[in-house]
């Protein structure tokens, strides 16, 4: 054996981790993979269980029939329409305000002023306030107290709009930040005012990103139940909303109502309604992804 081969064999031997160490490496990697597998398994088990449990009631009666104390005659029609009303109205309230706030903070606000920093920290903080606290706010100020709207569609939409506003602002700011500075510089160099630059160049360029963020925020509003319990999404409503001042219920609250009843038939109905809610949410998420991919511009 040549000296060179001896040396390279020796280097190879020294470079290789000892067996015990290799086993440890492998074990560590397996543990990490197991963590990921548990999370994915939980997701799969959840989705599978609601589909299996709710299978018997997944028919058109689910959205054709109104709630009823007799489980076999009950459906979620009023909840479906209530959800559509509330979520649409939430969007109408939160989108203009959220986008305006994002434009101000990202494009126009002087960064070093204390009040702008206060607003930023405050938005981060609001994003993590528990949703039930917004419910308390709604109960004290919107349903009763200063606004005194009562337990109606508009009250629910106001509360959900405040709830998702931080999400909309944060997502819109990210979309605005992704527009390259050269676009702004170009517009400004051609003599546009800062407002014209934002309104005619930056905002249109950021619209797909903003739309994606808004859709995701609204899908959060659609699944929210806790704050609406506080503002009284009545759990037994046998009519569709007729206006902003109409009593209402929404799908998550209807599901909660059915889950908390003792009869097994209502639990099946709850599972079926969950499948319907998840399909709605998945459609919205799919739409968000489609918007992002279809309209994304590359710079």
């Amino acid at each position: 054996m040549s000296a060179e081969a001896t040396v390279s064999a020796e280097v190879e031997r020294l470079g290789r981790a000892p067996r015990a160490k290799r086993a440890k490496e492998q074990a560590f990697r397996s543990v990490l993979l197991l963590c990921l597998a548990v999370a994915v398994f939980a997701l799969g088990a959840l989705l599978l269980s609601v589909v299996v449990d709710g299978w018997g009631r997944l028919d058109d009666g689910l959205w054709r029939r109104f709630p009823s104390p007799r489980p076999l005659l009950a459906g979620a029609r009023s909840a479906v329409f209530g959800t559509l009303w509330v979520v649409t109205l939430t969007g109408l309230l939160t989108v203009p305000i959220g986008v305006a706030a994002a434009v101000y903070l990202e494009e126009l606000a002087p960064r070093n002023r204390w009040y702008n920093r206060l607003i930023e920290v405050n938005i981060q903080n609001l994003a993590a306030v528990p949703s039930i606290v917004y419910g308390i706010l709604g109960l004290a100020f919107v349903v009763r107290g200063p606004l005194s709207l009562g337990r109606v569609v508009l009250a629910a939409a106001v509360i959900l709009a405040l709830l998702v506003l931080p999400t909309v602002i944060i997502a819109s700011r990210e979309a605005l930040r992704a527009v390259p500075p050269s676009i702004r510089d170009g517009a400004l160099a051609l003599g546009a005012t800062p407002l014209q630059t934002v309104g005619r160049q930056v905002l249109p360029a950021a619209t797909p990103g903003i739309a994606t963020g808004v859709i995701l925020a609204l899908s959060r509003a659609m699944g929210e139940a806790a704050p609406l319990l506080m503002v009284g999404a009545l759990t037994f409503v046998t009519f569709n909303p007729t206006g902003l001042d109409s009593a209402f219920t929404v799908l998550p609250v209807q599901i909660f109502n059915w889950v908390s009843r003792p009869q097994e038939e209502f639990h099946v109905l709850a599972a079926a309604a969950i499948v319907m809610l998840l399909v709605l949410l998945l459609t919205m998420n799919g739409l968000a992804i489609w918007v992002r991919n279809r309209f994304r511009s590359r710079w």
Partner: peptide, 24 residues
């Protein structure tokens, strides 16, 4: 593939988790 799958967990409404906790 895995990251969005994990983040799907964050998009599921809490009532649904409640049902899962009680029934499964």
């Amino acid at each position: 593939v895995l990251k969005p799958l994990l983040e799907l967990l964050a998009g599921i409404p809490t009532v649904v988790y409640g049902y899962f906790a009680l029934e499964v």
